[in-house]
Design a protein around this nucleic acid. Structure first.
Lengths: 209, 209
DNA sequence: CCATGTGGATAGTGTAACTATCTATTATAG
DNA sequence: CTATAATAGATAGTTACACTATCCACATGG
């Protein structure tokens, strides 16, 4: 198909597609002449993925680029790819050396150990959780850490379901895409479901007034 | 304290504070003369809250405004406030009437019912989950819904821990702030912990190579 | 008293994500 | 075979957002 049809099918404005091509999010079409190119179903699929990451996942274009690059890296083992995707999705917590943060980091590491998780100790996510703890302490909520135990427990189940799902996909390239989609869409879904659970739990606890 | 000290203490540039005052995120100080005002610990606390919502929660200023307005609403019962905060935090899914979406909505409602949750059926979060399902189906992942069961299960525990935490705070205004912080910071922490769990689970499952 | 700090108004900056326009082609419907 | 529409690529413009800077008249405090 030609670029116009691609845009119509995916519901994306033509100049936007050109923009994605310029930014390298979308691979160029197969040229048939100086000003003509053909786009196939892979382009359509990729374009839908891009839009989904931006609209549902709220990712900036630059991060979409990183994530797609990780998917496209040939011969990357799945767990490396997972790391690359995570890194692409992560907004690293601001680096700081204040003692409160160091302490918070240790608390997170202890939670990881207590749950028997195998996690590289230079994972950026540890710092994210640590910065959440620190910020909450600054705001007068030092007790929030106790809640995190439940989060770890819950995430254990969630991660197993997630990994089960992508493992079942079988074909490597589907698995790679599955990891990205599972990470990003799963996060969006999880946040929404958690809020539904809040609504329900507080409704039940504080009476049907 | 004066505005300069407020900025220094909170680590926020003075023009930024003026900007937040203009936008109504921060209430004005207590005027002592035409061009002087005093700021107290409440202002400092509020300013830290604003920065936290923006930096950790990634909220746009406009949403911070909505959320703060919900906190400040006097005499609002907690569950109403929770709804207002959720609405403030929510990026509503694009409205659409395609049949796939209607079907996805029904799937979500079935999940809600199966878990016995009490949720208003016009909650925006239902549409968010539905749009995630639809998007994933479009991208060739119609099976992802099966994973959501685990998400619901997990969120049940999480929400109980969350509600326990804020209920323990006791004082109303602390509870209100706790709801905001728990929602926003909890979401950030949860996403990070989930990714840690992914790392661990896939490391264990796919061998210590 | 006078350098420094302030409130309020207005204007400017930088980035991100498009969106529009232009030119030289090429495809294609009539 | 021609007139219309579509296309690739380059460049420039737009919009929204979150600050950031400058100005002024006035106030504070060493």
């Amino acid at each position: 198909m030609r670029i116009g049809e691609l845009g119509d099918t995916a519901g994306v404005a033509l100049p936007t597609i050109k923009y994605y091509l310029r930014e390298g999010l979308l691979p160029p079409g197969h040229r048939t002449s100086r000003n003509q190119a053909q786009y196939d179903d892979d382009h359509l699929r990729r374009l839908r993925l891009i839009r989904a990451l931006i609209e549902v996942g709220g990712l900036p274009v630059a991060k979409v680029h990183d994530v797609l690059a990780a998917i496209d890296e040939p011969g990357l083992p799945v767990h490396k790819m997972l790391g690359a995707v995570s890194k692409g999705l992560c907004t690293p917590a601001e680096a700081t050396h204040d003692p409160a943060r160091t302490d918070a980091r240790r608390q997170v590491e202890e939670l990881i150990e207590r749950h028997g998780w195998q996690v590289s100790d230079k994972t950026a996510e540890i710092d994210i959780v640590a910065s959440v703890i620190t910020r909450l302490a600054e705001l007068g909520h030092p007790g929030f850490v106790t809640v995190l135990d439940a989060y770890f427990e819950a995430c254990q189940r969630i991660a197993e379901a997630d990994v089960d799902y992508v493992a079942r996909l079988g074909k490597l390239e589907d698995v790679l895409e599955g990891v990205v989609l599972g990470t990003v869409f799963g996060e969006a879904a999880l946040a929404a479901i958690r809020r539904l659970a809040h609504q329900s739990t507080s409704a039940k606890r504080f009476g049907p007034a």
